[in-house]
């Protein structure tokens, strides 16, 4: 158990986006969050590394524990939390800097100054993200020159470089073509040995292919959480069944 949410409610102003979400994420497993648009799955994901702090007028109730500590406790520091819980976004968002400097951004902020250590870290991260062979000769080039799929893998490498324990992925392949999507899925499969991965996806085949656990959300509520196979073959809730069989959503 690496992350636990306990009776989490979330509000955008007066709008209630999540209701009483209680959920355990297991260490070094891939957990998928699925559900129709606006069901709150992305909102929950962004709560896990306190990215929703950046939006004005939001409010969280309940507890979210990371390794037993409430990350919404008054003395919890969102910056430290985000260093340990990385995030990959829907649209690839590399900085308009060189490939090298994209990777070194977080480690440098975390105080790593040694050139050799940094170079080793860049190589290791890019290798783990299976991008090294494609970019090793153009590390000083702008990240903006890469293709969309490469940019997304760079963003994954960038997140890996700060040595997180958890990686949150918010529909990471929705802006990519099928070939790039397959590469990212393969990558997720290799990463799960070392990292806990939580992925939001609107693509149910993808959830079925890559995840071990799946949570189904509807109208801000967690309807069902179980082993992926069970969710996709024999769900308990009628709503889940309707959704995965394509009756709505």
């Amino acid at each position: 158990m690496i992350i636990q949410t306990k009776n989490v409610d979330f509000f955008y102003g007066a709008f209630r986006a999540l209701t009483d979400v209680t959920l355990d994420f297991k260490k070094n497993r891939v957990t998928a969050l699925i559900g129709p648009s606006g069901c709150g799955k992305s909102t929950l994901l962004r709560l896990l590394n306190r990215m929703n702090d950046l939006i004005d007028g939001t409010r969280v109730e309940g507890e979210i524990l990371f390794e037993g500590q409430n990350i919404y406790a008054p003395n919890a520091d969102p910056v430290e939390i985000r260093q340990r819980i990385g995030m990959v976004f829907q649209k690839p968002n590399p900085f308009p800097k060189s490939i090298f400097n994209n990777i070194t951004y977080a480690p440098k902020l975390a105080g790593i100054r040694d050139r050799g250590e940094i170079e080793a870290l860049v190589e290791e991260s890019l290798k783990r993200a299976v991008l090294w062979d494609e970019v090793k000769d153009i590390l000083t080039k702008s990240a903006m020159t890469l293709s969309g799929g490469q940019q997304q893998r760079l963003c994954i490498a960038r997140a890996l470089a700060m040595k997180p324990d958890v990686i949150l992925m918010d529909e990471p392949t929705s802006a990519l073509d099928p070939i790039s999507t397959a590469k990212i899925e393969e990558l997720i499969d290799t990463l799960k040995k070392h990292y806990t991965i939580i992925i939001v996806t609107h693509n149910m085949q993808q959830a079925a292919r890559i995840s071990e656990y799946t949570g189904f959300f509807y109208m801000g509520k967690l309807i069902e959480f179980n082993v992926t196979e069970k969710i996709f073959t024999n769900p308990d809730a009628k709503q889940t069944e309707d959704y995965i069989t394509g009756r709505f959503g």
């Binding site: 430290e80 260093q83 340990r84 975390a110 105080g111 700060m162 040595k163 324990d165």
Partner: peptide, 9 residues
């Protein structure tokens, strides 16, 4: 897991 000096940093 950024080592020990994290806090003062």
């Amino acid at each position: 897991m950024n080592g020990q000096p994290t806090h003062s940093l």
